[in-house]
Design a protein around this nucleic acid. Structure first.
Lengths: 343, 343
DNA sequence: GATGGTTATGCATACGCTTGCATACACTTG
DNA sequence: CAAGTGTATGCAAGCGTATGCATAACCATC
């Protein structure tokens, strides 16, 4: 049916191994022979059988991308969805295929990571997931498969050994807050999410900026939502007095920020005149809302690129490399919602 | 290193082939032997080597999903992104992995479909792509690999032979239009996109509904955008007089509809009092905008489910089945932007 | 002209699994 | 009791590629 190296060998009048070596650029082959083999393979439209190759080399040229199960149920989708596209774009440069999976099969409950690795379907993993239960981590180290944590920062136990690429959310929190302070704001309401993880970092940056500028930190000025538009909207309705009492708010997710802005508008507030708003993430979605949202930009392309490059390094390394923590710096994108253009 | 069936065989005191048969539920194995083998395999955390299996059976338990290269550059992203999640959710029920790829590698220019199929990396394909150049189609038929076109309708040449799952856009166009007619509107502006393909169907439905209700069809009442929010917004600015002259508008993409609504609001129009708006797609995004958008719902989950089910059928069929055209009916979701709740 | 050294090629095996075929065993049955 | 019939298991080949090792061809050297 499909062409094999043996078929090409027959056509070229050489042995199967010569065909294999020719197509793999082995230095053992003479220029002339290689040329002829390549030409015939080309003419016949030959492609290697990936399974046979994988069996023989223990390499599949496929990498697994692990996503949270709910990645599109939540609004986090917009961000992670475009991250996936970036990954695909970058990995194709190395002719690497990409298997997407959720962390866990909801039907069977089977851990996708273990499954993909043990079945030898992937050469490496890019894990975009917040939780790293110890068992998974142990498994990864033991099975000696290259992997990179992307986006979510992991610090469970011995961080030294693992590779990860993530945004410096402390700095992000600091940047957004300081920007508002420099615009003259003193009481800045922080709308955040999640008790721990990256959001805690953002809050630490927020707090540090206040302290650095000698502004007392008021724990009452921190609200918690669930990252959704609706949650941002509802927080404004539920805590109208709090929003009345401040001149600015720093919302730790763009989608929530949009919800906050809509609710503020609905309650008659002008943005940024009555209250300045700064968001976090810089998702395309913000383009649809007026005023244009000033926000902390997460460098998606850079994150994706660095993660892939690191993974490729790990793949080609003879011995397993040391862990590398790659922290990417966010930047502030100044638009209109903060009022900077009015100053 | 990794466990093989041979290892399990040794532990169980049986031959390698008995292990293979046991794990594959062959009826040839005695209950007691199978039980013991399964238990040992379980204890040891055994998993099959997918490459060896693939080589032997010519099956990979992996299916390829082909996306347009630009699927997240455009706003179409919101819809296709969630479609992908649906596909993953459904395919995992059959323990099928999913390789995502763009139609064509932008670096090498190599056709992903051909590559994946010829290298035997996938058992089947779900193709979410509008163009089907004849060469690809010929290749697919010749290579005898199961494939299903999803979302985009293909009618090049002999449609009979191919399998596809798509929305009945004629009916969608009809539904949206008729709804407005029944609310009393006579002059309905149509904001569409793309000269051909699914958008042409939506326009045909629009036109049919008008004619059916004895309303003269006015070609001047059809505008064309590029499916983006911004394009919807700009059309309103560019054709303010046209929008003034009608009492309703049927926009053939939600994201465009949202742009249209924002622009209408910006020019002082009230929705739906001054002008009623109906969209198309029913993306989550619309939840963020007031008034809530009445729209034609594309049954994403159903589309994804049907495509997967059909593919699974094709995979397990002995001989290649006949082509099947699965047309899914859209439904109208009545919210506020059409004004029905005021009537 | 025998020896040694390159260089290019082929032979044969291994990778881990599936599966057709042979076989061994335990029963029935005439 | 020989022959037949299942039933459960093992043996061995084959899937297509990579690669260590043997070999052949060619040339240079003494």
């Amino acid at each position: 049916m499909a062409l094999t190296t043996k078929d090409i060998a027959l056509l070229a009048g050489v042995s199967q191994s010569t065909v294999s070596r020719s197509l793999n650029n082995s230095p053992l082959i003479s220029v002339e022979t290689r040329r002829r083999v390549l030409q015939i393979a080309e003419e016949q439209g030959f492609e290697f059988n990936a399974n046979a190759r994988g069996l023989s080399t223990n390499r599949t040229n496929t990498i697994g991308v692990i996503y949270p199960d709910d990645y599109l149920d939540h609004d986090v989708s917009l961000y992670l969805g475009s991250l996936l596209t970036q990954l695909r774009k970058i990995l194709e440069q190395w002719d690497l295929d990409l298997i997407v999976s959720f962390k866990e099969n909801r039907k069977t409950g089977i851990d996708s990571i273990k499954r993909l690795v043990m079945r030898k379907k992937v050469d490496g993993l890019i894990i975009v997931h917040s939780q790293s239960d110890t068992s998974t981590l142990e498994f990864l180290e033991k099975s000696d498969i290259p992997f990179v944590f992307l986006h979510f920062y992991h610090n469970s136990g011995k961080v030294e050994g693992i590779n990860q690429v993530y945004t410096d959310h402390f700095t992000g929190g600091y940047l957004g807050t300081e920007h508002l302070i420099k615009l003259g704001h003193r009481r800045i309401l922080c709308v955040s999410a999640d008790a721990e993880g990256e959001y805690a970092q953002r809050r630490r940056g927020y707090q540090a900026a206040l302290e650095h500028h000698k502004i007392a930190w008021d724990p009452a000025l921190v609200l918690f939502g669930d990252r959704t538009f609706q949650s941002g909207y509802n927080l404004v309705l539920a805590h109208g007095d709090l929003f009345d009492s401040v001149t600015a708010t720093f919302v730790h997710t763009d989608t929530m920020a949009l919800g906050v802005m809509e609710a503020l508008k609905a309650t008659g507030k002008r943005i940024p005149q009555d209250i300045a708003v700064v968001g976090y993430d810089d998702v395309e979605l913000t383009a649809y809302f007026q005023p244009r949202l000033t926000t902390v930009h997460q460098p998606r392309e850079e994150l994706a690129t660095l993660a892939c490059e690191r993974l490729v390094q790990l793949l080609s390394a003879k011995r397993s490399l040391r862990g590398k923590q790659i922290k990417v710096q966010p930047t502030l994108v100044v638009r209109q919602s903060c009022g900077a253009h009015l100053a």
